[in-house]
Design a protein around this nucleic acid. Sequence first.
RNA 1: GCCGGAGUAGCUCAGUGGCAGAGCAGCCGCCUUGUAAGCGGCAGGUCAGGGGUUCAAAUCCCCUCUCCGGCUCCA
Length: 645
Amino acid sequence: MSVDVTLPDGSVKTFDNPVSGFDIAKSIGSRLAKDAICLEIDNIFYDLSAIFVSDISVRIVTNNDPDALQILRHSSAHILAQAVLNLHPSAKYGVGPSIENGFYYDFLFKDPLKESDLIEIEKEMIKITESGQEFTKSEISKKDAKKLFKNQSFKIELIESAETDEGVSEEVVTMYSNDKFSDLCKGPHIPNTKYLKHFKLTKLGGAYWRGDEDNPQLQRIYGTSWFTKKDLDAYLIQQEEAEKRDHRKLGNELNLFTTSNELGSGNFLWKPKGAILRDLIETYSKNAHINNNYDLVNTPHIGKSVLWETSGHLNHYKENMFPPIIHEENDETYYLKPMNCPFHILIYKSDLHSYKELPLRYFEFGSVYRYEKTGVLHGLLRLRGFTQDDAHIFCTNDQINNEVKTLLNFSVKLLNSFGLVDIEADLSTKPKKYIGSDEDWEVATSSLKNSLTELGIPFATANGEGAFYGPKIDLHAKDAIGRRWQLSTIQIDFAQPDNFNIEYVNSDNQKVRPVMIHRALLGSVERFTGVLIEHYAGHMPGWLSPVQIDILTIGEVSNYLDEIKEMFSDYRINIDDRNLRLGEKLHNSQKNKVPIQIIVGEKDISASTVGINIHNQDNLKDVALTEAAKLIKAELKVPEFSING
RNA sequence: GCCGGAGUAGCUCAGUGGCAGAGCAGCCGCCUUGUAAGCGGCAGGUCAGGGGUUCAAAUCCCCUCUCCGGCUCCA
């Protein structure tokens, strides 16, 4: 008997029966055998040590393959757990999967671990990897497994709850062992621990057992691992780069915003330079909306409790709302608004609407307040008080399709204008608990899907992740260093029109319920500003820079300086005519990330020239003023907003 | 909200039971300056706030506020 092995190129090799993954890899080439990590057969991964007795079609997964990284990281997690148990035999271990860029493992310690303990654990891991222990797979009965893991309560729980993910099936469990360490696991793994060479433990954090808030909290150790030193270093440098771009740090350095102990969590104070930046973003977006058939509206920050009862917020959203504001004498209760929609609906309701008016689009920069848990607050990215570029579109069922398409295009173009060009979407569909008819959901969901397809926006479907009142699309933008940020959200709503009993008159003179679309394109102005700061690493494009030009003088140039000031008075300029050396003035200007420096010295007066430094360009000297004006105009150009092309 | 870490001058940080410190920024003076930080001086503090232990607390303990890393959450 022999085994026929079909390779991805279609060629067939015949082996003696049985044959191992190693044998197959070796027969193709010694280099491949060295780089091989595991096998893929019918979309399932197998260890290289797996034995085959019948014909198979196989792909050998090497260390160049993204799938191999998952396996390396999963094995890294095992080795981490092994190291931890070597050092802390009483520790209970939970689960340890591979994740994006790395891996983690959760533990419960008698004495909590400190961040500094990670060094020792890393050393122990190195010992394990250097000793080249083989991962061996075995299948044992649940009964035996329970005996083996009798001191490991989390493992017992996993065995009992038959989590197939963790290597448990109905009667037997799959287990991997190396040296004295064993773990439930369906595999596969790297052939032996020596394959793990480039790794680092990165973080220590808390995590609930099985991700449930009601379960005990474990300590989670995070790490990263890679096949080459180059990849590891690149990852660590990328992390450092991300740290340098932190909008909280840059916001402080560039004097954009601040906060205060007395202010309270989740709110920020915008300093003059930050306020300019925000205002530029808001004005740009506002004009784009006005020019694209939106009507500006404006609404207050608080509303009476009856409004929030009608909207359902007090039923569905109360724990995210600030506590009520109660006027005891007048027996009135108000709430700060967590959303703008009820106000926009009240505006809609204040008039009788004809089908001829629809779609009606109400736009507002609406500041909302949500009582987020303290632990989730994060700079400008997660706040308790923030401003949405919010609009509500009232339209007929027939108009949904076209509206969504227009909206998606509008959103992508708006994000593009701010330099975010790599856009992807998530489509969230009907959840378990929902309101409205299946038919409505079907229409709305397919409208969203068709629009994404038609516009060629790549999207992933998040099944069951929609809001209870309707499906939604979220747009994500990739930033300059490849991180994803969720920005736009477009949600179809069947509930609020019912709650508020809103209507329009159709061509048959019947009163009919409109559909509502909620949408925020930048998301929140604060969050969006934070994302832009991170995307540009604080070097905002010229048109968004709080200060666009620093004019730096050398010597006595006052008359000529007046001429230059006049010439560039349309821009946001700042003049440094202090008695300092040019080097110091440049240093200051560049520290403030001002995109353009104009250098004016005594030698420039007679020839009407200046020096110009433009960020990321070569420094220029003796440039004629007219030429300088042209360069500056180009650098500070405000992008035109157009939904076409 | 939960687990862990932190809060010292405007900013970045040193100081772990015994005199409150540095650099930058600020102010005053000198230098008259051409492409990435000239020189000197001065001033700057309720060591987040409150309580406790101690002969003595920035330092140890408790409470509160705020921030940071995670988890959970983000209808």
